[in-house]
């Protein structure tokens, strides 16, 4: 096993048991889990999603990116002997002994239609489209349910008082998995509220980035045409090299080095 593996290889490796099959003899640790009430023995190092596939389930929905970004694989589980109802992304969480699991295909939500360009940037816009946010009882259930560890209640509260910036900042990492909405006693669809907050803030409140503007202008002028052409002409090996180089420059830059 090479020491420096890039992320894609790691994922591919982790998925081997499902993609290539696995010999039970090679498995050291097994976990006993319950999928929709039925008990299964699965290799203990699998994610919930892989474990379900191992057990014979086939995902025709509730699965997208397999990398923790798309929010499609919402899972609810309870551990044997615990009263707490937990949430997770099936592609990101390892199985554990005694998990009672259920996949959520979808959490129904109503999304109002609004025009980002025409909607005035004023506090009460939130209430106009999402009046139900006024029903929030501050129970914090949404925050507890969020697999992204966001302060969901806090952004709902910020929406109630028309604070676009706070909504956008607090909800930035939302993957729209719908867990919060499913658990909310006030029947709020938090992720639609925060999406509205983010697009409105992005358009009207976010301070203009001068550097970005410059780059956009240059792009329009065609200054990067040659670079793009070069990139598109690379073969697999060359593009891997180019990607590594770009990542290295980025890491240096983020560390505070020169561009």
């Amino acid at each position: 096993m090479a020491k420096e593996k890039n992320i894609m290889e790691k994922i591919a490796h982790a998925n081997q048991s499902v993609t290539k099959g696995i010999d039970p003899k090679d498995v050291k640790h097994w976990a006993k889990i319950y999928i929709m009430g039925k008990v299964y023995e699965v290799p203990a190092d699998l994610t919930i999603m892989q474990a379900m596939e191992y057990a014979g389930y086939r995902f025709i929905h509730s699965c997208g990116c397999r990398a923790g970004f798309c929010g499609a694989c919402s899972t609810i589980y309870r551990m044997k002997g615990e009263y707490k109802l937990q949430t997770a992304m099936a592609c990101q969480t390892r199985v554990e002994c005694g998990m009672y699991l259920v996949q959520l295909p979808f959490s129904p939500a109503e999304k109002p239609i609004y025009s980002v360009t025409k909607e005035p940037y004023e506090g009460n816009s939130f209430l106009k489209y999402f009046p139900e946010i006024a029903r929030c009882v501050s129970c914090n259930t949404c925050t507890k349910a969020c697999p992204q560890d966001l302060e969901v209640m806090d952004y709902v509260q910020a929406a109630l008082r028309g604070d676009f910036q706070r909504v956008a900042e607090l909800s930035f990492d939302c993957i729209q998995c719908g867990m919060c909405a499913l658990r909310c006693p006030a029947e709020i669809v938090q992720y639609n509220v925060s999406q509205f907050g983010r697009v409105m803030y992005g358009r009207n409140g976010f301070p203009e980035n001068k550097a970005l503007k410059k780059v956009v202008k240059a792009t329009e002028k065609g200054e990067y045409k040659k670079d793009f052409k070069n990139l598109l002409g690379l073969n697999m090996k060359q593009s891997k090299e180019a990607y590594k180089k770009q990542q290295a420059t980025k890491a240096k830059f983020l560390k505070g080095g020169k561009k």
């Binding site: 006024a134 929030c136 009882v137 501050s138 209640m153 806090d154 509260q157 109630l160 008082r161």
Partner: peptide, 11 residues
């Protein structure tokens, strides 16, 4: 008046 942080609607 020191605004309390992370306050929520009192209902």
């Amino acid at each position: 008046l020191l605004e309390i942080d992370r306050w929520n609607c009192c209902g």
